[in-house]
Structures are given as structure tokens and as C-alpha cells.
Amino acid sequence: MLDDTDRRLLRQLQNDPAATTQALATRAGVSAQLAARRFDKLRRDGVLRGQHARIDWRALGYSVEVSLRFTLDKAAPRAFDDFIEAAREVPEVVEIQTFLGRVDVRLSVIARDLDHYHQLYRNRIVTLPHIAEVEALMQLATLKTDERLPL
């Protein structure tokens, strides 16, 4: 699906997403026109799904991140849908993942401090629908975060 030119362009884009098409093309060894056409095709094909800003939530005063693992009461026909719909309404929930296995859903929750997290947990998290079991894991450090693909 991807040829060498696409891979070179994507590598350059991953290394410097704010660079102009001209700069990316130069670094990839192709013309700006070819790069623009390839990026357009990669967008149409769904390979490139857009560019976005990554905001450091710690710089905005959030110092706590907790990973919450939930097992849901699956006797309710809409347990997953109801839970996810309600979890999306909590602004401090920054990620929702679903799984097969003992854990059904994982939420990544941020808070300003432990008091804020405690309030969130009591008032917003444990009131989510269809919870059978919850396990909290407090994150101490992020050792690797890399969205770049090995192209």
C-alpha cells in the first residue's frame, strides 16, 4: 500500500509535524507538488487522519493520573453503551479503552491533586452505571510515549 516515497514523507512528517510541505518534501528528496499530492492521497485513503496539538495537561495544573480498570455488570443489555456514554461526560476522563477479558473498560483520569481525584472518584467515577468491580492504578511516571510508527 505504501511505497518508499510515502514512507519517507511520513517519516519526515512524524519527525516534524509543524514543518511545511516544502520542507518535508525537501527532506524526503521529492518535489513539493509530489509531496502535496501524496499527502492528499494518504488523507483520502485514511492513512493520515489529521494533525493535532498535543497539550501537556501537567502544564495546566493537573498533577495526578490514574488508570481505572472496570469490570461491568454485563447482565444489563446496554452495560457497555451506558457506561461509555456516561464516562464521556466526565471532562477529566482523557482516554477510554475497551477490552476482551476480565477487564472490560479502562479509563485514564487526570486530576489537579489527590483531593481533586478523591472528589472525582466519589462523585463522578463510582456513580457511573453498571460497575461490578473497579481497580485503580496511580501512575508514577511515563517512561515512553511515542506515537511514531516504524516506517
Rank of each mutant, 00 (worst) to 15 (best):
M1W: 06
L2A: 10
L2S: 10
L2N: 07
D3W: 02
D4E: 12
D4I: 03
T5W: 00
T5G: 00
T5P: 01
D6P: 09
R7K: 09
R7F: 00
R7L: 10
R8F: 09
L9P: 09
Q14I: 08
Q14S: 15
P17N: 00
A18R: 15
A19V: 05
T20R: 15
A23D: 12
L24V: 10
A25M: 05
R27P: 10
G29A: 10
S31H: 05
Q33S: 13
Q33K: 08
Q33E: 13
L34R: 08
A35T: 08
A35R: 07
A35N: 06
A35C: 13
F39P: 11
D40Q: 14
D40E: 09
D40K: 09
D40P: 06
K41N: 11
L42P: 12
R43W: 05
R44K: 15
G46E: 02
V47T: 15
L48P: 05
R49M: 10
G50V: 12
H52K: 09
R54W: 08
W57P: 13
R58V: 15
R58T: 15
A59L: 13
L60H: 11
G61S: 00
S63Q: 02
V64R: 13
V64A: 01
E65M: 07
L68G: 03
L68I: 13
R69P: 06
F70H: 00
D73N: 14
A75E: 06
A76S: 12
F80C: 00
D81E: 07
D82F: 01
D82G: 11
D82A: 11
F83Q: 00
I84W: 01
E85F: 06
E85P: 02
E85C: 05
A86V: 02
V90F: 01
V93P: 06
E95S: 07
E95D: 14
I96G: 01
I96P: 02
I96L: 05
T98K: 01
L100G: 11
G101E: 06
R102E: 15
R102C: 08
R102Q: 14
V103D: 09
L107H: 04
S108V: 10
V109I: 09
V109C: 02
V109K: 03
V109S: 03
I110Y: 06
D113N: 14
L114V: 10
D115W: 03
H116G: 05
H116D: 15
H118D: 11
Q119S: 14
Y121W: 12
Y121M: 13
N123A: 08
N123W: 05
N123R: 15
R124H: 13
V126E: 11
V126H: 07
T127P: 07
L128F: 12
P129R: 07
V134F: 00
V134D: 04
E135I: 10
A136P: 02
Q139A: 13
A141C: 02
A141I: 03
A141M: 03
T142C: 12
T142M: 07
K144R: 11
D146P: 09
D146L: 07
R148C: 09
R148D: 13
R148K: 15
L149Q: 14
P150H: 11
